[in-house]
Design a protein around this nucleic acid. Structure first.
Lengths: 228, 228
DNA sequence: GTCTATACACAGATAGAC
DNA sequence: GTCTATCTGTGTATAGAC
């Protein structure tokens, strides 16, 4: 499955994140009309991503957010109680949507080799589609507060354990060679992250997300597959 | 060469960075006594690393730096004209020392396979020794100003090109298989960076820097070496 | 539901005593 | 060479008009 097929199949949408945030935070959001609220939340989230991506977390202040969204300071505070709450909303909701898609993918295949490939591709494709969210999470979430950093680490461990389990399962079936599966899984994660952390490089090299995924899978299989 | 041998052979020292910064910035540093200045610069740099590592760039303010160093606000400003200048000093000097060591290593071996291994190991070992600097550079330097981010990107390209060249050279000599060398080099960089970006993970997994380097090299060779 | 105006805290930076 | 005290700008957050 390539990137285009993937996005179509899972019907991914940034707007869905904004809608779910609205539904899950009705008490703290003072704006009650769904359409208005979801529209503005989407505007706010995109502005947060744009600002942090370009200038980093320090540049994300309320006046900048007001400028970038075209909304006033007063209006912004109708959507969150304080800055930290805003960041937690973005953080938490993205994680839900992403892990949901991810869990679905894991279930499809039985064969460890196919499963490994599908999981690796899914992660790269998700990070491509929700790139601002992934980038924000990796670069900035750790600075919000200790519990957000803990969430980042546990997400890393969750996805890494899925890879480790597939590798162990494949070793038992004599498909994979018995190399340190945890360390291998960790390396796979490093390469996956490369895609969303350094888009500037791949834009320059003119490498597509599908080419990148192919290359990563080729490297992993060269190392893991039992040689025939 | 393992990590211990490496550090001994190249006589790496954090104090050297502080000393070179002092010598290269005599005009802007108001403190003239070398020993005092170098001592305090080292104290300041370590405090910057500690603060940004724990709380990120936003938490790095002059009052926190004052607290962490035990120096007063007034004293701090005897060592740099403004905050941006302080960060540029840290940034620029580390890059000099590191690229010097790196360039030395490249020259030692002729055989592409040995050269690749030596370069990969050197990068990991350097990032282990100067970890706070590497981490700071990757995570925060991009936020100082556009030219510092440009410097980060050009450093990435410089080290990646060294890897690409070795891979191309090895392919010509029929040692390596002719896979996309730029993309492979890029993946190697991603895995190298993993080591200093996620120390928390490897501390937990109880993986040493030498084990990590061994595993990375095994993966790269499995993919690149011509099968016999 | 959105705006303007503003309170209040904290940041970077400097002056001038010691 | 280092300190304390302080200026000035900017940040978060709120009050209250529309």
């Amino acid at each position: 499955m390539n990137y285009l097929e993937f996005t179509k199949h899972y019907g991914l949408s940034n707007r869905d994140i904004a809608r779910e945030v609205f539904l899950n935070n009705r008490e703290s959001i003072r704006v009650k009309k769904e359409k208005t609220a979801v529209n503005n939340l989407e505007k706010i989230f995109n502005a947060v991503f744009r600002i942090t991506y370009k200038k980093g977390f320090q540049a994300l202040n309320m006046r900048a957010l007001s400028r970038e969204t075209g909304m006033s300071l007063g209006s912004l505070y109708a959507y969150f109680t304080d800055k930290e709450k805003l960041l937690e909303m973005i953080q938490g909701q993205g994680w839900l949507i992403i892990s949901k898609t991810f869990a679905e993918v894991v279930e499809i295949h039985e064969d460890p080799r196919k499963k490994l490939e599908a999981v690796v591709r899914a992660h790269i494709f998700l990070s491509e589609f929700f790139r601002p969210w992934f980038y924000f999470t990796f670069m900035e979430a750790r600075h919000i507060n200790p519990s957000e950093f803990a969430a980042v680490k546990s997400m890393e461990e969750y996805t890494q354990n899925i890879l480790t389990d597939i590798l162990i399962q494949g070793t038992k079936q004599n498909i994979f060679t018995p190399e340190n599966p945890e360390l291998t899984a960790s390396m796979i994660k490093a390469m996956q992250q490369e895609w969303y952390l350094k888009r500037w490089k791949y834009r320059k090299l003119n490498v597509s997300v599908d080419q990148f995924a192919d290359h990563l899978i080729a490297m992993v299989e060269a190392f893991c597959l039992v040689k025939v």
